[in-house]
Amino acid sequence: MNLKQQFKEGLITNNPVLVQRIGMCSTMAITTSLFNGIGMGLSVLIILTCCNVAISALRKAIPNDIRLAIFVVVIAGFVTIVDLLLQAFIPALSASLGVFIPLIVVNCIIIGRAEAFCQHEPIGPSFFDGIFQGFGYTVVLVLMCLIRELLGSGTFGTGIFEIVDGALRVSFDGSAAGIRIFPEQFGATILIMPFGGFLTLASLLAAMQYALRKSAEKKEAAERAAKVEVVKEAANNA
């Protein structure tokens, strides 16, 4: 399996959230600001990559009957490491994600990739699978955050970007106020609430289904056209 194909799978054709439809709890729960989205996405990316490598390295030693228990223990170990690191170095992120960082243990993406990919594949492809699947997850989180934040409270990049004295300031401690696109009272606050999470994810999934269907139809039409061409040619030759 080559890298380009793996990248395409992680981002589009086999995207963990939009196509495999796993890991949706966190996708809907924490996507209220860009800071949360990127923080959560990168945490999952790091944990997923570490777990993929570890499980792939151990794949011949893990007995088949108790593999799920072993996966869970490996995942819980890495999640604890990331959780403690975040508490120490980015306490603001740890506070705003709260219980959802330890809950990465039961995030279906990680156990799903271990089950579907790493227990059969060597370390190299598993490593890149972790990076690309994690990237696909992060992209969906960021998209959700951008939509919910912009329409919900009229800002862009809360926690990361802000404009101070006409200059763009980037910070990574979650203190930035965000760039205001339109006044707050015009925002649909409902999008920041749980309802908005369900609705935004539903719209993204519907958009994805629409795009996949259109591309399938296009392919079918092209195939039909090619077939007609062949028949015509055959008729001409006769």
């Binding site: 749980p194 369900f198 539903a202 519907a206």
Partner: peptide
């Protein structure tokens, strides 16, 4: 409902409306 909402998306919208009620 629109064809693109078939399956999961419409289920999510339904869940969202229930969430709205629970608000």
């Amino acid at each position: 409902y629109p064809e693109s909402f078939e399956g999961f998306p419409i289920a999510l919208v339904t869940a969202g409306l229930l969430a709205l009620a629970f608000m």
